[in-house]
């Protein structure tokens, strides 16, 4: 049970933290239509995280009955940095539009094969969330792929910015395929997806899109890890400080 809880929280945290980062673009996008597009993606990710948090809360309450039961809100707003399991890439500051788009592309290119597999999970709830989310991720992947190509194969300025973003983000992509202990346990228990098995599909799609974007796949290098086990960069604290402020300052406040 604890494995299922940890694994579900990992999926939830990834979606929530990227949703929060993308939402920072609200009102700041380069043009109105793309501002709306990115905030729509943010909303989809937020919705996915809610489904996962609701499920995790249900599991936690079944396992540890408490006078203060866990809820989707307590999981999002009342846990501290070390309890979050999201990959480091998702907590990084947005950088420019190109870097934000490239990160979304890397993440969607991971979520797409992940949910394709998880649709068949032995856990019916995870399978249902994956089936639902996959339809949304298809749009995210197409939108972000197009923008990576448009900017990479764009002007001299946009190309050099994409090169810089690629160099910045690449170090954080390895963590996706480096399974945490709860991911390994989830695979053994039969409901999780083996992260290492997604790497080839991810790399093939990323290589194709980067090539079309006239960008070069970086050479293998040392990769940052730790987020999946709660060892985060200094950036996550700032994300949480903003996201959790209201519930921390005014506990149980509602609209």
């Amino acid at each position: 049970m604890q494995t299922l809880i940890n694994y579900t929280l990992y999926l939830a945290d990834n979606a929530l933290i990227l949703a929060q980062r993308n939402a920072e673009w609200c009102g700041h996008g380069p043009i109105l239509e793309q501002d709306i597009a990115l905030t729509n993606i943010s909303l989809d990710l937020l919705g996915q995280s809610r489904s996962f948090y609701q499920y995790a809360a249900q599991l936690i309450n079944a396992e540890h009955p408490s006078a203060m039961p866990a809820t989707e809100d307590s999981l999002a707003y009342l846990r501290d940095v070390f309890a979050f399991r999201n990959i480091l890439m998702n907590e990084l500051p947005n950088g420019d539009w190109g870097q934000t788009v490239l990160r979304q592309f890397f993440f969607s290119a991971y979520q797409f094969p992940l949910f394709e597999r998880m649709k068949h999970s032995s856990d019916a709830t995870l399978a249902a969330i994956a089936e639902k989310s996959l339809k949304e991720v298809t749009y995210h992947l197409r939108w972000s792929s197009e923008w990576v190509i448009r900017l990479g194969d764009g002007t001299e300025e946009s190309h050099s910015r994409m090169e810089k973003a690629l160099d910045e983000l690449w170090t954080y992509t390895g963590e996706i395929f480096e399974p945490a202990p709860y991911e390994k346990a989830a695979v053994e228990a039969g409901f999780g997806v083996d992260a290492t098995s997604l790497k080839d599909a991810w790399m093939e799609r990323v290589s194709n899109i980067l090539q079309e974007a006239t960008l070069t796949v970086p050479a293998p290098r040392w990769m940052q890890t730790g987020g999946k086990e709660g060892k985060h960069s200094e950036h996550l604290g700032f994300v949480l400080a903003e996201m959790q402020f209201l519930q921390r300052a005014y506990p149980n406040a509602t609209w």
Partner: peptide, 13 residues
């Protein structure tokens, strides 16, 4: 199509 995403998640522009 102007944009894949419109005024709400279910619409495009």
């Amino acid at each position: 199509r102007i944009s894949e995403f419109g005024s709400t998640a279910c619409k495009s522009l």
